[in-house]
Design a protein around this nucleic acid. Sequence first.
DNA 1: AGGTACATAACAAACGTTCGGTACGTAGCA
DNA 2: TGCTACGTACCGAACGTTTGTTATGTACCT
Lengths: 197, 197
Amino acid sequence: MPARGDHDARRRDLSEAVWRVVAAEGFTGLTMRAVAAELGASTGLVTHYFPSKTALVRHALDLAAQRVDAMPRRTPDADGMAALRAAILDVLPLGRAGQIAMNRVWVSSWDLALADDALGEAQRERYARWRERLRRQVQTAQERGELPAGDPEDVSATVAAFTHGLVTQALFDPEEFPAVRQERLVEGFLAGLAGAG
Amino acid sequence: MPARGDHDARRRDLSEAVWRVVAAEGFTGLTMRAVAAELGASTGLVTHYFPSKTALVRHALDLAAQRVDAMPRRTPDADGMAALRAAILDVLPLGRAGQIAMNRVWVSSWDLALADDALGEAQRERYARWRERLRRQVQTAQERGELPAGDPEDVSATVAAFTHGLVTQALFDPEEFPAVRQERLVEGFLAGLAGAG
DNA sequence: AGGTACATAACAAACGTTCGGTACGTAGCA
DNA sequence: TGCTACGTACCGAACGTTTGTTATGTACCT
């Protein structure tokens, strides 16, 4: 039995297994043994890389954040309204590989995040960073006259609310929310933003 | 030791305990023993009223749905735009007793609902019913000219998205989303709806 | 030789579930 | 009215399983 594998490669295998488990069973189903079984390895391997359950959960959340950032963007060099539209569409579960799994992981994590102070704080910070990114695009759009004047913080919070609320509905009812409809809803929402102060 | 208590009263006690446990610890923390401890009773009592864990979880979700319906409404006889505004404000965690707990329970339940088909289906139906209620108010508002023409299904889905997305953000960051700001965001959102077709 | 990378096994704790026992109320019979 | 029988309500403890964690052993590379 080979002992020494490539450490980083092994770690990536672990991450893949963790991801699949959480996407399929939620954080409720994330256990040391489930990860080991998914990988076809022993629990010893898992504990070797993650000394505790808490470390495992944290890694799963890090993975989610990391994959959000690494996700291929549409029109990455856009600005203003076009960038805002792209930012929303990038998040929605429109069928691109991994998008549905990613959103499932996020929504699942909220159960733990609401009950655990440290995880809740991490979630709060992630939301704040997301709104901060949106706010920059909102301001650019306002300067260009693509959006009417108004508190950029409030506008970005509204955009974040609409987006995540749509994500949740689409996750539970994919048939009622196919990609075409989600895109139509985004257009309608953006038209509302542009049309009112 | 008194043996025969009032059955319905006892059941209400159980429900209260279940509610407190889920609101505090999420569905991850909902266990037979936790409910018994919260009530200061034995696990035997819990199993007497809920023969299985599944029954317990289902009851917790029923409780949430039931409390949503029983929640005192503001302006219950309003119609059209006023009713739409009231429906949104009724759901938001603005500080009214029980509202925060109720929303915590809902968001927590999504972890289980995403992993379990039956629970996911129940969640899907609840969302559909909610949109249905919103849709009626949207149509009335459109007929009155308070809202521009447009697919009422899409408008109500957008309203539901904005509302639940705001709920989630407010739960994780109450300081950033005090009641005053939530109400301001609602007004801005509704102005956008009214201002664009 | 020595340290890294695992497998294997065991551990206590917590879980859902089951079960025997007991206290109390009600119904039936006298 | 008084005695008995029975069902309901509940306790307390135990069951087997699953959990996170830890310890021990072993193969491999440097």
